[in-house]
């Protein structure tokens, strides 16, 4: 998608991050193009969550830089922006869907207000328009519009995840970070959520960085996949190619560890 654009949307250069003496990230570099979906897979402790937080501007790397294509300004190091700019970027041009919806939603505020909070932060002051926008987005993520005034505390896990997605997409961001969006859901709910994500990413032309330990999720959504082990990228390539014909011994181990149903 959008393969004609000349610059990448997001660009990581030689990222390094330590926790004391423990190396969480080492020499991680890659480019993400507009509309591209990149999966980062690896076992627990491989550094994939650290990488996601570094990319999303939440954790400054010890070395290296994260560049994002700002409208009219070209590639900029997000850690050189002032904090206000970075926070504005994070709630307009980016989305972040947390593994646990509790971290990404206001649990005691109605679904509608959760969805349109970003619009209010951007200065929308017309209740009627906000209300219509909230209803639209509930329908986009296949939630019952009648639940607009219910708080997410009384929603099921799958519904909360849908609501979190709507809340992030309402500003039509160009880049979305997904942190294990389907783990913790039962398989039928997972399948429907994945369908929804596939449809929305295609319709909106979203670029996505997806962290998952579930290779099936990567295969279903991602164009490209990176495999991480001990903070390093050990293999990366087109998802189908990588999963069908793994080269690195660790990738081979990962692929062969999946239990057939």
């Amino acid at each position: 998608m959008a393969a004609d654009s000349a610059t990448p949307l997001l660009c990581a250069r030689a990222l390094r991050r330590l926790y004391g003496r423990i190396v969480a990230l080492e020499e991680v570099s890659f480019e993400l193009w507009p509309g591209e979906i990149l999966a980062i897979v690896g076992e627990s402790g491989s550094g994939k969550s650290t990488l996601l937080h570094v990319l999303a501007g939440q954790l400054e790397p010890d070395e290296g830089e994260v560049l994002f294509d700002l409208p009219g300004r070209g590639l900029q190091d997000i850690y050189r922006l002032c904090e206000g700019e970075r926070r504005t970027l994070a709630r307009t041009d980016w989305g972040f869907v947390h593994q646990h919806a509790v971290d990404g939603l206001r649990m005691h505020v109605s679904a509608g207000a959760n969805v349109v909070e970003r619009q209010m932060a951007l200065g929308e002051r017309h209740y009627g328009r906000l209300r219509r926008l909230a209803l639209d987005w509930l329908q986009h993520v296949e939630l019952d519009p009648a639940r607009i005034d219910d708080a997410p505390v009384i929603f099921s896990g799958g519904m909360r995840q849908r609501l979190q997605i709507a809340r992030n997409l309402v500003t039509l961001p160009r880049l979305v970070f997904l942190d294990e969006p389907t783990s913790g859901l039962d398989v039928s709910v997972q399948a429907r959520l994945l369908d929804l994500l596939r449809r929305l990413t295609r319709e909106l032309g979203l670029a996505v960085v997806l962290v998952t330990h579930d290779l099936a999720v990567a295969r279903l959504l991602a164009h490209r996949t990176m495999v991480m082990q001990l903070g390093r990228v050990v293999e990366s390539g087109l998802t189908d190619q990588l999963l069908d014909d793994p080269v690195h011994p660790y990738t081979q181990l990962l692929v062969s560890s999946v239990l057939p149903p």
Partner: peptide, 17 residues
């Protein structure tokens, strides 16, 4: 940073309910 979108969440909730 004068990020005050949250204040309108409260007012939105009032009108919604």
């Amino acid at each position: 940073l004068a990020e005050y979108g949250l204040m309108h969440v409260k007012l939105y909730e009032d009108i919604a309910h």
